[in-house]
Design a protein around this nucleic acid. Sequence first.
RNA 1: CGGGGUGUAGCGUAGUCCGGUCAGCGCGCCUGGUUUGGGACCAGGAGGUCGCAAGUUCGAAUCUUGCCACCCCGACCA
Length: 490
Amino acid sequence: MAKEIVSRSENYSQWYNDLVVKADLAENSAVRGCMVIKPYGYAIWEKIQAQLDKMFKDTGHVNAYFPLFIPKSFFSKEASHVEGFAKECAVVTHYRLKNSPDGKGVIVDETAKLEEELIVRPTSETIIWNTYKGWIQSYRDLPILINQWANVVRWEMRTRLFLRTAEFLWQEGHTAHATSEEAIEETKKMLDIYAEFAENYMGIPVLKGRKSPNERFAGAIDTYCIEALMQDGKALQAGTSHFLGQNFAKAFDVKFLNQEGKLDFVWATSWGVSTRLMGALIMAHSDDNGLVLPPKLAPIQVVIIPIYKGKEQLGDVAVKAEEIKKELLKRGISVKYDDRDTHKPGFKFAEYELKGVPVRLALGQRDIENNTIEVARRDTLEKVTVPINDVVNYIATLLDEIQENIYKKAFDFRQKNTIEVNTWDQFLEAIEKGGFIAAHWDGTTETEEKIKELTKATIRCIPLDSGFEKGNCVYSGKSSDQRVIFARAY
RNA sequence: CGGGGUGUAGCGUAGUCCGGUCAGCGCGCCUGGUUUGGGACCAGGAGGUCGCAAGUUCGAAUCUUGCCACCCCGACCA
């Protein structure tokens, strides 16, 4: 199975597609816009889930599960929310099939029409706030800090594996608070968790910021996000955290008695990351040889490949390999010993490179004699031979080093591709090159939309950590107090 | 949803204009043997309602119509 992928320079999006399919992460399914996540891809997602889940729980959140279906009437209760999602909702109208009169298959039974149509959730705010109404009477019932791991459906026109699919997996946190301050604090706390996860586990540097009103979540007062830069210079929104104010509490009439005995509406947040993170992971680090996975999320961290001539040599090598495997496992490092005799070593080397396994060990007769082993790292493709007795320690350190190196590489790339511009001409030039553009913006939706129309660039975020700076809008010339980040985005 | 393109074995493709010895090739797959420090080699073998459905015709991968899927570009979006 000679699996070739097209190079990034030749065709970036083809490279991405090739990679997803050939590294066995996912494939298109029989259902338009929906993907099958294959075991290797799902294993990465499970690692993402496990870590995030731990971080959520460490900050006081608990998991629960709400229904896939949402009564249509719930949707119309929050005006901007409906408006935002109406165009991409799948709707269930019937609950029964019957045999077709012509004998060819089954048809919808028209007599089984639902009294009220059900929406397949594109997000769960409405069903959750309808539920919270029954749970909250007093400030003593607050806060509610719930997360759910679920699938959602958004009927997208154009889909791409992981980046945009009609059905996707995600987590959505939905919290309820007694005060605005507390809810805002929660919104920012979760944004910080996302950023920490992206940087420390995925190895992807992210910009934390706030969305412009135009890019805000439907129904939110404020949307915060983390934005990552991909190797082709396009931005990718990797996570969002919303301060919902009292919008949903008002829409679903969720009130509580505060300590002064006065009725008030509850304050809300919601926050989520999805399988889109897989797309970010792939595009941030991988190269023309295939995936490059950060050790902390790699399903297999180390692969051992035996090199041998004849069965008796394999025996010697196998003993040593199993020994090393056991030692690595003891250290909590995941290992695969690949002794398939149906493929040659060179084939396996290429295969594990394609799959992004961070460290590869090659062990042969020559090594047994010299008490050495060959260690190859995926991120730099460097190979070294180390004494076999040191290999476990060596690998433990190396995995950390790879994790760091991957992040550093991505960080340097972002630095190199983030540019401050002050004139419209500079802006036009910069946007063609790709990357993040820090420019002044007059704060109006009209300007934002005009820029989008002219350049396809959108405001990715208004960075949280960049300070006040007097300047003039790059497009309109009107005065501005802060630079914002523009980019073309996924 | 609009514009463009593609659909032939698991994958990549030739053939389609000009209907009839056109169902071929490469990779992969299976069996046996030799191999094994960067994608092995030899020999033999299996596998296809030519995307689906109607139609034209003595005859359709090839012509007509409709549908479906995928890719690229736009509008939408995590």
